[in-house]
Design a binder for these strands. Structure first.
Length: 495
DNA sequence: AGCACA
């Protein structure tokens, strides 16, 4: 009983066509294995990302002598075998062939199967998933579900190349903390390929989305699902949805104006009215949407997020008892966007036009430039989709009065637009510690140039939060094009 | 840094 375990250290190993490689970087991909081994012979099979740390691999040569030549070469070489600068240790495997190399999940396809470990289904919204994966290309569809393996999502890209770039960059990574509820510990993504090629999404709902077909009906029971989770965990605080959100603003180091709130909350639909007030020394605000659904989506997406980088102006959202606010139309603490600005009635541009460029474009149905997706099919990125981007504001003077009419489609649809880059990639633990709202990209910190309290006449709004939603920002972000570059960061770990 | 679980 004392000697049996000693066999694992074999100083004399039987040569095998199969080599065991360890101390690989966990990101190692098959191509890198081949690159390393091909000089010694023909590779007939590989298996990488093996083991708990995903840092081992197997390579099978066509011929035993090829494997022997590789082992003996590095046994006497002064230069060790390396992948991404890491020394790789090579031995004969104790098996003579690689079995089951290509499981179903290893066959590349355009649909990824993502398992989100360590979370409940309600912890990660579909919007967060969309944000994370949009960094690699246009996400066509997402379906989420719960299986024995945990919370899973199927994510459909245009093609296998895009899907694999997302897989290679995100497999094993975590969704940043600031995109998750506080109670979630680490949550790792395990990504494989699905055998699906085209997901059949029947409704826009809290568990599935079809971003190629914004006109897909909203599943009414799915809307319930959005509102239900707001019931307190203890069950005693039963909240019902309302079209009016109550926002408490924590750690308010910087001014939060009506305009800022409007920018942030407009990302999810038409904001009708806003009122800011003080209660118990804390700043609160009421934000009125046309309907409960829009409010629910905004609440879901913004709860716990900070308006400004650095943990400033953290939002806590609940449903108000109000359904229709009675506020002054134009004061510094309130705004009624349903009333046209009388001072500008004669002018070409309504007051809200420059303050809220996104308000009009949110609803494609009201904007003539909007592209209807034919048949709901969009095989690849279609630039006309940008018509629904906030950047596509109709020319001044074309602002129709019905801009604030009831939206013809679910208001959260625009949130589904591709994000600039993956928050995961942006906040790698190596290069940058995740902060409260680390996805504030273009240098809009409170200490920066842009004053949070001012809305620029050009329509460029000053909310990083809004930019994160890829919505309230009136500017098309240069790297936001799906199918474009990989996000910065995922190549950073060479060396 | 020491062998794969589909």
């Amino acid at each position: 009983m004392s000697t049996s375990s000693q066999h694992q250290f074999r100083y004399t190993q039987t040569p095998s066509k199969v080599l065991h490689l360890r101390n690989l970087p966990w990101e190692c991909i098959e191509e890198e294995l081949k690159e390393l081994c091909e000089p010694f012979g023909k590779i007939v099979n590989t298996k990488c990302n093996v083991g708990a740390n995903r840092n081992q691999a197997f390579v099978e040569f066509a011929d035993l002598n090829q494997a022997i030549s590789m082992v003996s070469y590095y046994a006497s070489s002064s230069e060790p075998a390396q992948v991404r600068g890491k020394t790789v240790y090579i031995q004969y495997s104790n098996r003579h062939e690689i079995v089951n190399n290509k499981g179903p999940g290893d066959v590349p396809g355009n649909v990824l199967l993502v398992t989100i470990e360590g979370v409940e289904a309600g912890d990660v919204s579909i919007d967060v998933i969309h944000l994370v994966f949009s960094a690699f290309g246009f996400v066509h569809k997402i379906a989420t579900f719960e299986k024995a393996a945990g919370f899973q999502a199927l994510i459909q890209f245009s093609d296998a190349e895009t899907a694999s770039s997302a897989r290679n960059a995100l497999d094993g990574r975590s969704i940043p903390r600031y995109l998750l509820p506080d109670h979630v510990g680490s949550c790792h993504l395990r990504i494989s390929y699905s055998a699906h090629t085209d997901l059949n999404i029947k409704f826009q709902s809290y568990r599935s989305r079809d971003y190629t077909n914004p006109y897909l009906p909203v599943n009414p029971t799915a809307i319930e699902g959005l509102i239900q989770p707001t019931i307190g965990p203890d069950g005693k605080k039963k909240e019902f949805g309302s079209n009016v959100l109550l926002a408490s603003i924590e750690n308010m180091q910087y001014a939060v104006t009506v305009d800022v709130l409007h920018t942030v909350f407009s990302a999810f639909g038409t904001v009708q009215k806003i009122a800011i007030f003080e209660k118990n020394g804390q700043t609160q605000a009421l934000i009125q949407y046309p309907d409960v659904t829009t409010a629910a989506i905004a609440r879901e997406a913004l709860e716990g997020h900070c308006i400004y980088d650095g943990g400033y102006c953290k939002l806590h959202l609940s449903y108000s008892r109000h359904t229709d606010l009675n506020v002054k139309a134009f004061s510094d603490k309130s705004r009624d966007y349903t009333i046209p600005d009388p001072s500008l009635l004669g002018a070409q541009v309504p007051a809200t036009a420059w303050q809220n460029p996104q308000a009009a474009a949110i609803y494609p149905g009201t904007v003539s430039t909007t592209a209807q997706v034919p048949g709901g099919q969009m095989p690849s990125w279609d630039p006309t989709m940008q018509a629904v981007r906030p950047g596509f504001v109709p020319a001044p003077g074309t602002f129709p009065a019905q801009t604030y009419a009831a939206p013809p489609i679910p208001a959260y649809y625009p949130k589904a637009l591709p994000a600039a880059s993956s928050p995961i990639a942006q906040t790698s633990p190596i290069t940058r510690a995740p902060n409260s709202m680390g996805i504030t990209q273009p240098g809009i910190s409170p200490s920066g140039n842009l004053q949070p309290s001012s809305a620029s006449p050009t329509g460029h709004v000053s909310s990083p939060l809004a930019q994160t939603s890829s919505l309230a920002q009136g500017v098309v972000q240069p790297n936001a094009r799906p199918g474009g570059m990989s996000p910065p960061g995922h190549r950073r770990y060479y060396g």
